[in-house]
Design a protein around this nucleic acid. Structure first.
Lengths: 336, 336
DNA sequence: CAACAACGTCGAAGCGCTTCGACTGGCGAA
DNA sequence: TTCGCCAGTCGAAGCGCTTCGACGTTGTTG
């Protein structure tokens, strides 16, 4: 194993100089730095993570808490995760993966062991049991999602309430008077998952404000469930002309189902979704949608955490404004 | 922070005794051990990960290399991952998440830094560029999947070739003479992803052996693609009566598409799949399938790695025999 | 032109843990 | 009775790194 003393010897300086040259925490002459970097390259030096963590008090590892609970859309969650990992690497950090089973105890464990410097917490619930723990921890954390009470925490997410509202308002503007929200699987609501609840709030509030007739239906993430929900919606609301879909897995089958039921999109039915742009744009009928900016959220979560690790102030709440892209699945309501 | 000296003081012993009491590497009297464990509990002692790694030469962290490449089924891959994490925890280890962008360089990096003790490598390709690296590394690794040449490596996976064969043989036994394989997305084959190629090999070999007429079609993981493939198959092979599906995302839409095209499953068309049992069992038409035992594979991969870390010998290849469950999607071929 | 900042570098002291060698009492074998 | 052993414990020596204080050297500035 190549250690810092090897580098020091090859560069003709002391180990502490090597350390300072690499960390930049003290001024080092350009010439010395060059020789150190040269030696690092020649020898393939890599600082020992444990030694560095012990001496420096920083492990350069972040914990990512990814509870892959029932009903969540795994591909979407993993987009956040991959983006976070990529961004962490840009800050020379690695990412430790924590899953559900570990639970709150696991968070405390990795912090107490000084295994990680900070935490990224995903799949936040309105009344999340991890909140108290995170507030009490002596390590910074960032949540992806807003719990009911985010006081003293750092949170970031798409403004899902505004997203739900924007969808309804878009439909209302096009003349639609009877609208429905096809949401996440029921388990997600039962748990009180923050983002799902907020979409419902926004959807309902905007519909009430606009005096629209509205309905909300959870939906399992399968084609069969999508078909069933489509049929049910039309049965309950034959006058339905606008649908908001907040369920990535159900979006495509749902549109297919509506068309099989004799409704053309957008001629007879306008559909808008909250989902990643790639998905909305790739469908047979490109869907007007509010982008779910998973990459941006994951990246910014890490950036916030890095700022906190540097002792810099960060906003408690970072709420990304919804951005709608009109694609072809929404149209003026046909006058009967 | 609670450190080992604190525990030692409270238990009335020396730090080294605490260390031995906790690691079991030297005999310690029952009474002393009791007092140490008591002190650990009272104080909430957690050994400092960095210090432990530095002194002990083991970080108790495993790297999991999860390249979420185009065309892979993310939920399935994450089942492996979650199972691996859970099992690692049972061995008191944590898991570091490495993604694609880091590439081979990332593997070397985390090993050189002594950040991880071993590696779990997923999404293996027949001619995987990481092979040489893994062979040369001075840390053990386990691959989930078999490359073309696995000499000197430790690999585990479902025997996908046998799985492909078993599906065909099952159909042949039921009298089917014209069969098709609906496979993974094209990118997966282009990359030479090991498991996908092996299914094709097994499928083709068994079909040839049984003198069946056969065809292989990749399929994108979308309902639209599934419909298109279904239509194309029937156009090219009107006599088709048996289908093997190796594509989780396309399975349900594919069955729907066949039925829309006028074929009843299993009366007119027998369908069998290679996928997780939960998926096969949950469909409207429960599908006869070869189980993809993601949980078992993930868990056993970690167990193999642990054995290697202990210096114990492990088999180079662990190939899990396919296990078929008949569900309702396959039937004797109707005599025309 | 003296006094005093930086600047650039070094040596030494730890960070918290594991592990090695050594020591102390029994206890069975010789 | 003595020797050797083993169980059970301790002290000290690191593991490889960061960081603190110190010490020349140059430049600045009143």
């Amino acid at each position: 194993m190549v250690k810092i003393t090897d580098v020091a010897r090859h560069a003709g300086v002391s180990p502490s100089t090597v350390s300072y040259a690499l960390s930049g925490k003290r001024p080092i002459s350009a010439e010395t730095r060059r020789r150190v970097e040269e030696a690092v390259r020649r020898l393939g030096y890599r600082p020992h993570a444990g030694a560095r963590a012990l001496a420096g008090g920083r492990s350069k590892v972040l914990a990512m808490v990814v509870p892959l609970r029932a009903g969540i859309n795994v591909p979407v969650v993993m987009r956040f995760a991959v983006s976070a990992v990529t961004t962490a690497r840009r800050y020379d950090h690695d990412v430790l993966l924590l899953t559900q089973e570990e639970g709150e105890e696991g968070l405390r464990r990795v912090v107490d062991m000084a295994l990680v410097d900070g935490l990224i917490v995903m799949d936040v619930q309105l009344d999340d049991p991890r909140l108290a723990l995170l507030r009490g921890l002596d390590r910074p954390s960032v949540m992806i999602g807003f719990p009911a009470d985010s006081k003293g925490l750092t949170c970031i997410d798409l403004d899902f309430k505004a997203a739900g509202e924007a969808c309804v308002e878009h439909l209302a503007r096009l003349g639609h008077r009877v609208v429905a929200l096809v949401g996440s699987p029921p388990e997600v609501y039962v748990r009180g998952t923050a983002f799902a609840q907020r979409v419902v709030q926004g959807f309902t509030a905007a519909a009430d404000r606009g005096r629209l007739t509205s309905a909300v239906h959870p939906c399992e993430p399968t084609p069969a469930a999508a078909r069933a929900v489509a049929a049910q919606l039309l049965r309950e609301q034959p006058a339905l002309t606008g649908v908001v879909v907040h369920n990535e897995a159900a979006l495509e089958p749902l549109i297919d189902a509506f068309e099989e039921l004799g409704l053309r999109v957008p001629a007879d039915l306008s559909v808008t979704a909250i989902c990643p742009d790639e998905l909305a744009a790739s469908l047979r009928v490109p869907v007007t949608s509010i982008a779910l900016p998973a990459d941006e959220v994951g990246a910014r979560a890490v950036e916030l955490l890095m700022r906190k690790l540097d002792g810099k102030p960060v906003p408690e709440a970072t709420s990304l404004s919804p951005r709608m892209t009109e694609r072809g699945s929404t149209a003026q309501r046909a006058v009967a």
